[in-house]
Amino acid sequence: MNEMEEKSYQLIDIIEERLEQFCTDWAIKALLNNENQIRFSESQIDIYKSWNEIKIILFLSQRRRTLDISINDLSIIAIDKALQNCEKLLEVAKLNLNYKKMPAGPFEYNPSIQQKIFDQKVVNLDETAVDIVNDATETALNEGANRVAGSFFYGDTQVIQKNSLGLEGSFNKTQLMLDEKQE
């Protein structure tokens, strides 16, 4: 388990303990993002950015009063304050007529989906991402473009989930997008 996963599971445990005190149903989703973007213009790279963050998304319910909130200030003080606000809000919230209760399962998933949404080659792109951008711009210039601008986004996300019915799970996904404008 890497440091981000360890931290995420710790946070989930802390949040779970708090939620048990004022929620009838809850679900916690931790997103562990490693994302990158190379921005280029005038056929040159302007900046190569990387984001490394944990984002916690909560769905909370207290007798059919529901709310959801995302937290990415991971300090315990900030999490406590956010949950205190949630508790207050749930007290004044109206009944959510669209919500009955959390589905208990059992759920069946096709394991081949994981292979379709995750590609290790995307995770390993760091060494070659600049070359991909360079190839894209050079090709455009060789084809007659005067200048090229755009962005190349790639990254991976691990999703860890847990809910008040004791269901737990996690999966990984990757994403990439090349956006190019030629003149």
Partner: peptide, 8 residues
């Protein structure tokens, strides 16, 4: 308010 999202 019954579907409150990211209020804070």
């Amino acid at each position: 308010i019954e579907l409150t999202s990211d209020a804070f």
